[in-house]
Simulated scan of single mutants.
Amino acid sequence: MLRVGLLLGLFGVVGTGIVAITEALTREQIAANERAALRQAIEAVLPSTTYNNPILEDTLQVSDPLLGTENPILAYRARRDSQPVAVILTPVAPEGYNGAIKLLVGIHYDGSLAGVRVLSHKETPGLGDEIEEGKSEWILGFRNRSLGNPPESKWQVKRDGGTFDQFTGATVTPRAIVKAVRNTLKYFENHRHRLFSKEEEHFHGSPR
Rank of each mutant, 00 (worst) to 15 (best):
L140K: 07
I107R: 02
K102Q: 14
V85L: 05
T59M: 02
L60I: 02
G148K: 08
E95P: 04
D58E: 07
F11N: 04
V92I: 13
I107P: 02
F203R: 07
D110L: 10
S146A: 11
R79Y: 11
V118W: 00
D81H: 14
V85S: 00
T171L: 08
E137P: 03
S153I: 12
E199L: 10
S63Y: 13
T173P: 08
V45P: 01
S120I: 04
L147R: 04
E200H: 05
P151Y: 13
D160A: 15
R39E: 15
S197W: 09
G99A: 08
V45N: 04
G106R: 00
G17P: 06
T124Q: 04
V116F: 09
E34D: 10
G169C: 07
G99W: 14
V19Y: 11
E132A: 10
L104D: 04
V19T: 15
P150S: 13
V92R: 00
E189H: 15
L119N: 08
S82H: 12
I101Y: 02
G134I: 15
Y51T: 12
T69V: 11
K135I: 14
V14M: 05
K158F: 14
K186H: 15
W155L: 10
E132R: 06
R80P: 04
I30A: 03
V172Y: 06
V14Y: 11
L140F: 02
V181Q: 07
L195V: 02
I177E: 06
E70L: 10
N33D: 12
I88E: 02
L113G: 06
E189W: 15
N144G: 08
S48Q: 08
Y76R: 01
I101Q: 05
P54L: 07
L6R: 02
R145K: 13
R192T: 04
